[in-house]
Amino acid sequence: MSNLQNLNELNQMILSGQILDAFEKFYDDNVVMQENSQEPRVGKDVNREYEKQFVSNVEEFHSAEVLSTAENGDTTMAEWHMDITFKGGQRQQLNQAAVQTWKDGKIIKERFYHGE
């Protein structure tokens, strides 16, 4: 499968609510993930806990949409729009771009660009 095909499957799993399953399937054990210019999180265990915390803080996903995707060699990107209510009642419209670097069908690096 191409990196773009893997990205599309990853995105479909996220859209169907399988966020943690997608993480297990497509992320390398040594993945490095980063939000904007914050300090990177290194390793699958650390990032798994971050993802679990995010999911546990969501009260309701009203909608999520992949607006665009692209591929250039080992790099892919996905532009997202999400409408989420977090626990405690805070509803947010989130826009982000996620840029992934792939190796052997797994994401080894991912950086998210979004408003803070």
Score class of each variant (00 low, 15 high):
Leu7Met: 13
Gln90Leu: 07
Val55Gln: 09
Met77Glu: 13
Arg48Thr: 02
Asn72Glu: 15
Thr85Glu: 02
Glu65Ile: 05
Asn47His: 02
Trp102Ala: 05
Gln53Asp: 15
Asp21Ser: 03
Gln34Gly: 04
Asn30Gly: 14
Ala98Ser: 11
Glu110Leu: 03
Arg111Val: 10
Val66Arg: 11
Asn72Gln: 15
Glu24Asp: 14
Asn72Lys: 15
Ser16Val: 03
Glu110Phe: 00
Lys106Phe: 09
Ser16Ala: 01
Gly105Cys: 07
Asn57Gln: 10
Lys25Ser: 07
Phe26Met: 03
Arg111Lys: 10
Met13Ala: 11
His62Pro: 03
Leu4Met: 12
Asp28Cys: 11
Gln53Ser: 15
Ala98Asp: 10
Lys109Glu: 13
Phe54Lys: 12
Glu110Cys: 06
Gln100Gly: 07
Lys87Ser: 00
Tyr27Asp: 05
Gln34Ala: 10
Tyr27Cys: 07
Tyr27Leu: 05
Leu67Val: 12
Tyr50Trp: 03
Val46Met: 12
Asn72Pro: 00
Ala98Asn: 09
Gln92Asp: 10
Gly17Met: 05
Phe112Tyr: 14
Val31Gln: 02
Ala97Asn: 11
Ser16Asp: 02
His62Asp: 09
Lys106Tyr: 11
Val58Ile: 13
Ala22Arg: 08
Asp83Ser: 10
Gly73Trp: 03
Val66Gln: 13
Met82Asn: 12
Ser56Tyr: 02
Val66Ala: 08
Gln96Glu: 13
Tyr50Leu: 07
Glu49Thr: 11
His62Glu: 08
